[in-house]
Design a protein around this nucleic acid. Structure first.
Length: 418
RNA sequence: CGGGGUGUGGUAUAACGGUAUUACGCACGCUUCGGGUGCGUGUAAUCCGGGUUCAAUUCCCGGCACCCCGACCA
């Protein structure tokens, strides 16, 4: 990517009424653009990050047998009436579609996936299975807030699993937990994300959230210092201020962002849609379901909330928009320009993702400040000075550690970083 | 949905019942050339509708939008 032609404009000022740090940085850095409250465009660099997060999630869902499908956002009213949620769900966007028809803009997909599954589940031999999709959700939040942390349109990965009995659902649920842990670790949130007991679940007593500790969080959780699980404030009365796993009494209160949620639906939706299967004895039984959600923009914003400093974002390598930010200085100097262009070519040939600041006429300070703002893991400076010295300056964004390398050693060095 | 606040160039702001300020940005020129360099010139704004008034960006009413607190959050 050449910065000279990138569809991005950074800004020193920023909209005064955006409080959320992640939103401020995303807007300032030109990673995202706000269309209206709770609705954002992802611009090239922000979308790069988004796609990397999406791919990590996809891989992990496939690793637990999830099959990717794609369900529509436009949904018939009748499905929502079957569960009573056409009336009760007040975040539901209800659209009029001509004189006598109304349709829903999907805020979630139980109402779609359950009857869909019914077309294929006849017998216990058809179970279990899991499908997921990564798709836009629409929720008319009364109060969209905190930038991308709570949008009215956002992309969610939701996986639905279908089971013949509780033991099978339980087993899958545990696998999903582990897969969620891997997702958050791979996105750089492993240290600060906790499995959190929350309310709900038709069969089981609790649902589980994955909560990332952050001052930007909307939720209050109580961390167990012993076993690193937490309890959401909403059920703290239930568990009497003690860890549901080990009974520990001294829990630590933290604000946290809910980055994921897993939930045993039991037979709630199968009952509403008559989703049944024949067991070995030929008896009809309701299918048991689980659902498992992750909001992608929220996850992206959460990474920023937990990975930034005063100068800007600090991306974990696995989801950074690119591995390297190559800054070319002194581009009016033909030799400096040539050597920078060669580096860019070499990096691309080596398949190292690189953002190349090839813009002419900007001061070095501006380029440095912008590199700090973008927060790519490695900054490489090529200039008349480095050319004369025969060494490139390579600086890590995370700890400011600086190395000086011969250009020929750069690629090997960068490969060693990952 | 309840409460509070704010709407001025692209962004951030000042002021005021009477010619709309400044900075950033953007355009051009010079300057500088390893931490948002300095200077000059130019560009560009009072959310919408109604009311009061000789005169409204300012005051009043309504709407809309945005932000904050709360409620809600499969």
């Amino acid at each position: 990517m050449r910065q000279s032609t990138l569809f991005v404009k950074t800004s020193k000022n920023l909209p005064k009424d955006e409080i959320s740090e992640s939103a401020r940085l995303l807007l300032r850095a030109g990673f995202a653009d706000k269309l209206m409250a709770g609705v954002y465009t992802l611009l090239p660099l922000g979308f790069k990050v988004f796609k990397k997060i999406e791919q990590i999630i996809r891989e992990e869902m496939e690793s637990i047998g999830g099959q990717e499908i794609f369900m529509p956002a436009l949904q018939p009213k009748e499905n929502w009436e079957k569960t009573g949620r056409w009336q009760s769900l007040d975040i539901l966007f209800r659209l009029s579609a001509g004189e006598s028809r109304e349709i829903a803009l999907g805020p979630t997909h139980e109402e779609i996936v359950t009857p869909l599954a019914g077309r294929f589940i006849k017998s216990y031999r058809d179970l279990p299975f899991a499908v997921f999709h990564i798709q836009n959700k629409f929720r008319n939040e009364k109060r969209a807030k905190s930038g991308l942390l709570r949008g009215r349109e956002f992309v969610m990965k939701d996986l639905y699993s279908f089971h013949a009995d509780q033991a099978d659902l339980d087993g899958y649920y545990e696998k999903a937990k582990l897969s969620y842990r891997r997702i958050f670790s791979r996105c750089g949130l492993g240290d600060c994300t906790y499995l959190t007991y929350a309310s709900g679940g038709s069969f089981s007593k609790y649902s589980h959230e994955f909560q990332t500790v952050s001052p930007a969080g909307e939720d209050l959780i109580y961390l167990c210092p012993k076993c690193s699980v937490a309890v959401n404030k909403e059920i703290i009365a239930d568990v009497k201020h003690s860890c549901p796993q080990c009974g520990q009494k001294d829990l630590i209160e933290e604000k946290a962002i809910e980055v994921g949620n897993i939930f045993q639906l039991g037979s709630k939706f199968s009952t509403a849609f008559g989703l049944k299967f024949s067991n070995e004895q030929g008896e009809n039984r309701p299918v048991l379901m689980g659902c498992y959600g992750i909001g992608l923009q929220r996850l992206l914003a959460t990474v920023i909330e937990t990975h930034h400093d005063q100068k800007g974002m600090i991306w974990p390598a696995a989801i950074a928009p690119a591995a390297v930010h190559l800054l070319a200085l002194n581009l009016e100097n033909e030799d400096a320009k040539k050597s920078a262009e060669k580096l860019y070519r070499d990096l691309r040939t080596a398949r190292i993702e690189v953002l190349f600041d090839d813009r002419i006429g900007l001061s070095a300070g501006e380029k440095f400040a912008e590199a700090d703002l973008f927060g790519l893991p490695c900054r490489v400076v090529a200039s008349a000075r480095t050319l004369a010295a025969g060494k490139l300056e390579v600086k890590k964004r995370s700890d400011n550690k600086t190395d000086f390398l011969a250009p020929a050693d750069l690629i090997a060095f960068l490969r060693g970083q990952n």
